[in-house]
Design a protein around this nucleic acid. Sequence first.
DNA 1: GCTTTAAATGCAATCGATTGCGTGAAAGTC
DNA 2: GACTTTCACGCAATCGATTGCATTTAAAGC
Lengths: 382, 382
Amino acid sequence: MRRQGDGKSGYPESGENRRATLKDVALAVGVHVSTVSRALNPETRHLITPQIVGKIAEASKQLGYQPNTAAYSLRTNRTRTVGVVVPDITNSIFPPMIRGVEDALTPLGYSTLVVNTDGQPEREAAILDTLFARGIDGLVIASVERENGAIRTLASRGTAIITVNRRMDDPAIASVTNDEAEGVRHMLNHLVALGHRNIATIAGNQNLSTGQRRYEAFLRNAVDMGLDVGPLRVGFASTFNEADGERCMEELMARGGDFTAILCANDRLAIGAIMALKRRGMSCPANISVTGFNDMAMVDRIDPPLTTVRIQQYRVGYAAAELLLERMTKRSELHRPQHLVLPVELVVRGSTAPPAQNSGIIALNNSLKSGARRQKISAGKA
Amino acid sequence: MRRQGDGKSGYPESGENRRATLKDVALAVGVHVSTVSRALNPETRHLITPQIVGKIAEASKQLGYQPNTAAYSLRTNRTRTVGVVVPDITNSIFPPMIRGVEDALTPLGYSTLVVNTDGQPEREAAILDTLFARGIDGLVIASVERENGAIRTLASRGTAIITVNRRMDDPAIASVTNDEAEGVRHMLNHLVALGHRNIATIAGNQNLSTGQRRYEAFLRNAVDMGLDVGPLRVGFASTFNEADGERCMEELMARGGDFTAILCANDRLAIGAIMALKRRGMSCPANISVTGFNDMAMVDRIDPPLTTVRIQQYRVGYAAAELLLERMTKRSELHRPQHLVLPVELVVRGSTAPPAQNSGIIALNNSLKSGARRQKISAGKA
DNA sequence: GCTTTAAATGCAATCGATTGCGTGAAAGTC
DNA sequence: GACTTTCACGCAATCGATTGCATTTAAAGC
C-alpha cells in the first residue's frame, strides 16, 4: 500500500528498482516465504522438494535476489563480519596480514572491518566498543600488548578472538605468531659466522610479545654462544619505528660500548640505526653490520639491502582467519587455548659483512676524533 | 518467556549479559520505546521533555545501551558503512588513502569495508556485488578504469560513488585526483634544467586515467619545450609494477633509442627501470636519470633515492570521504558532477643528475660492446 | 480401507529499532 | 467557559529474514 503501485502482479514495479526480497521470490513461485528461505539455505534445503527448490533457485536468480544482511543479522544475531585491529594500516607489515585474513574469509561470505589504534590503548578501547556496537562475530587483533584486561574479559565472555603477530602473556588467548626465538638464533649464528663477537642489540618495546621474546632470545642465545652482552650493548626502543631506532643507535654510540654488529628487533629500527650511522659518517656494513626483523616490503631495495628475518606476514593472517572461523562456528573450540607458531627464514643481504679490523664503535669514535674522518671510512669501504 | 527468567524487574538478568535494548531502557525509565528512541536521537530530541531526556540518557548510560546496528539498518535501509575498493591493499600507495577515508568517516559513526580487486575487472564485479549485498551507503573506488559500465549504472541509479586517485572519462562520476599534468610538467622542467634534452618515458596503462593523463602531459609539455619524443622513446607498461618497468626499460634499451633520462609514470615502474639499468651494468643517475611519480613510502630510502612527484595520498582519501558524505546525506548533491584536483609537489632526490658527456643509451651500448665495461661506468660515476 | 507415520509446506512470532498517526492534557484564544 | 491549537508521548505497523510449531498431504503398515 505504501509503495507498490496497484501491485497487480505482485512483482516489484519495473520503474523503481527495489531489491528483491524473499517475499518477491515467494510470490513469483507461488509458495510461502519460509519455503523460499529453506530452499535457499543449503542446511535446510533437504526439507523441500527438489522440484520446488529448482523453481525457487531459478526465480531467485531471475529476480536477482540477494538476502538482506540486516534482516539476517537482526534475526540470527550473527553479522558475518570480523574486526581486524591493527596499530596502523600504513605500516607496511600489516597490509599483507590483513590481506591474508580477507582472502581466507571473503570466500566464506565474511567481511572484514579494519580499524587502526595508532598504538594508543585508549583509542583501542573506543575502537573495540564501536566494533562491538556493529556486532562483529570475531576479532583478529594485531595490536595487542602482552597484557590487556579488556580483551581477556571479552574472550572469557565468549567472543571469538585471535591475536596475530603478537600474543598475550595469558595463554588462554589464542594466537598465531612467528618463531621469534628461531629468527634471532639464526641471525646471531649468521653474525658469529661472519666473525662478529661484539654484538649489540636494539630491543623493541618490552610490553609487546615481539619485543620481549626477541630480546629474551637475544640474551639467551648470546650467552649460549659465549658472547659478551653488557648493558652498554643494549638499547630499548619504546616504539618500533625509524625515529626510535635512530635515537637508540645514537645513545649506544654515545655510551661508547664497543661493538661491530647490531641486531635490531625489527626492520624499522634497523633503518633508523643505519640512518644514525650514516649521519655520523659511518657506513653499514663496512663499519657496523646492522640486521632487522620482519622482512618488510622494500627493505631489499634500500641502501644497503637489509639482512633480516623473513616472517610469513600473509600466512600469519590467513592462518589466524582459519582458526577464528573454527572458533566462530564451533562453540567447542571457543575456549581452547591455541597457539600457532609459523617458521621464519633468515635472509642475508647487504647490511651484514665480516667485521673489518678497524671497525666497531670505539675504533671509529677514535678515528673520527683524530680528524682522519673521510679517509678512514673510505678505506674501510674498500 | 523465552529467556527472561521470571522477569520481575524488567531488567535483564545479571547472569546472562544480553545487550540492553531500547525496551530495556524504556522499562527502566517507565516510558515507551518510541520515546526513548526519540530522546536518544539528536534530530528528534526536541520532541521530548528535557527532564525525561535526562532520565533516559542516564538510564541508557547506566545499562550500557548501544543501538543494534542491524535493526537500525533494516528499518532505515542505511548501514553507515562505505565500501573502499582498491586494487591491492598491499601496494603501499593505498594504505594512506584508506587511512584518510577512515579518519574522515569513523568519527561520524561510519565504518569502512576495504576490498581488493587485484586489478581484475571480473573480480571487481563480484566484489561490488557482495558490497551491495551488504548494503553499503557509499563507495570509494581507487581501482577504477577510465570506462566502467557497472559503475556508471550504479551511479545513475543513485548510489553515492566517488573515485580516488583515478577518475573515469565520464564526467558525471565524481572524483578526487592529483594534478598529474602539473606533476609531469614540474618533472620535465627539472630534467631540462639539469641539462637533459633527450628524455624517454615509460607510460602507464592507458586504460587508467593516471596512465593516460601523465602520458598526455608528457607529450604536450615535451613538445612545448621543444624536446624530441619519437616512438623509440616511449614504452607502455600494462601494469604499474616493477616487473613491467623492468621489461619496458629493457625494450627501450634494446630498441636503441638514445636518451639520458627517463620519466616513469609511477614509482614502481621507476624502480623496475633502475633494476634493469643495474642489471645491464649501468648506473642511475650517472648514466641515466630516472624519475617516478607518487612518492610512495620508502622510495626516499632506496638506492638511489628516487626523484619523484609527491601526491597527497592521505588527503586524497580524506577529501574523497568528505565529498562522499555530502552525497550520502544530501540527495541534492547526488548527481552533481564534482572533481577535486589536489596539488602535487616535485621532490628532487638522488635518481636525477645532469647528463654526463658519455652517458645515454647509445653511448653506453657502444662502450659496452667494445668491452670497456667496468671502466667506462665507474668513470661515469666519478 | 483405515490408522499411523513421515515428509513437505504454511503460519506466525520474533529480532530491535524507526516513524506516521492518534490521543490526552495543557495552554492559548475570544 | 467552550473551543482551538500546541505539545509530549504512546500505539502499532514496518523493515526482511529465520524457525518452532501446526497443518496438510502422501506413503506405509496391517
